[in-house]
Design a protein around this nucleic acid. Structure first.
Length: 262
DNA sequence: AATCAACCCAACCGCCGGACC
DNA sequence: GGGTCCGGCGGTTGGGTTGAT
């Protein structure tokens, strides 16, 4: 890899850069990003380093498909908070705001398109696969928004809650697809696709499990514990009573080698 | 086998707010 | 109190991958 010293690097990170960043985060912690960017010689902005760490290198990250529980939680929390991705992400240990945002955009855009196309077709087809094929979202009875009619592709904006509600009012008449309907379709989908469940870790092709990586890290990097707020984890994991902890740890990480060698 | 469309996701950008001087 | 710096957040984009035709 050729490091360009003159100008700030952009674009995809190389494995060497990742290792370098890991090492410097190990030395200086995950706060002083601008400093890390400078002293590491990465020629990246502090922001870029932070993003790479938070969205990709952080040892606590989960990988692989969203579980049905997570999907459900995302739907619930988005209905509650709008596009407050980081806030939503805090309720899903191991998932980043970016990941959730991407997930939402991908899936909800699909639904919106289907809904557009499906105006003249039976509703059962328009939302029959609200979540990914692996989805087995179960009935949700505690949904606060169950009676509301929300825009699926809403976005809430910065003030998600308010904007979300505004969207509800705005689109109430023209769209008319309630969360109630959505959940009905989810249930239908569950019935139809219950045989398609795939374990989260199915994609684990690496020889290095997160567990071993984390174990290794906690030895090599005493700072690790403080990086991902354990208190937050424990407290907020209580909310996600259906998320087994081993699932959190065991998903794959293709950069395991980098961790172990870095 | 080739092509195209849809999907996925990493990364960037701009804005905002808090901390510090 | 005002200015600057920097981290955090939400929105957007573009490239790679996958699946359908």
């Amino acid at each position: 890899m050729k490091m360009v010293q003159e100008e700030t690097r952009k674009g995809p990170w190389t494995e060497q850069e990742d290792i370098l960043l890991m090492n410097f985060v190990g030395l200086f912690g995950d706060r002083r990003w601008d400093f890390i960017a400078k002293v590491s010689g990465l020629n990246r902005t502090g922001k870029s380093c932070r993003l790479r760490w938070v969205n990709y290198l952080h040892p606590g990250l989960k990988r692989g498909k969203m579980t049905p529980q997570e999907e459900r939680l995302v739907l619930e929390l988005h209905a509650k908070w709008g596009n407050r991705w980081s806030r939503i992400a805090r309720k899903l240990p191991g998932r980043t705001d970016n990941e959730i945002k991407n997930y939402w955009r991908t899936h909800m855009r699909k639904k919106a398109q289907e809904r557009k196309r499906g105006v003249c077709s039976p509703p059962s087809s328009s939302f029959s696969n609200i979540s990914s094929p692996s989805s087995t979202v179960t009935t949700v009875d505690s949904m606060q928004f169950k009676t509301g009619k929300a825009s699926f592709y809403d976005t809430g904006g910065r003030d998600g809650q308010v904007m979300g509600m505004a969207a509800v009012h705005e689109e109430n008449e023209t769209v008319g697809y309630s969360m109630d309907d959505i959940w009905k379709d989810i249930e239908l989908s569950e019935e139809n696709n219950s045989l398609m469940i795939r374990p989260v870790c199915e994609e684990n092709t690496s020889n290095f499990s997160c567990a071993s990586i984390i174990a290794s890290l906690s030895l090599d990097y005493p700072w690790y514990d403080s990086l991902w707020s354990i208190d937050d984890f424990e407290e907020e994991s209580k909310m996600i009573n259906n998320l087994p902890s081993d699932q959190f740890i065991s998903s794959s990480n293709e950069y395991g080698k980098a961790y172990l060698t870095g």
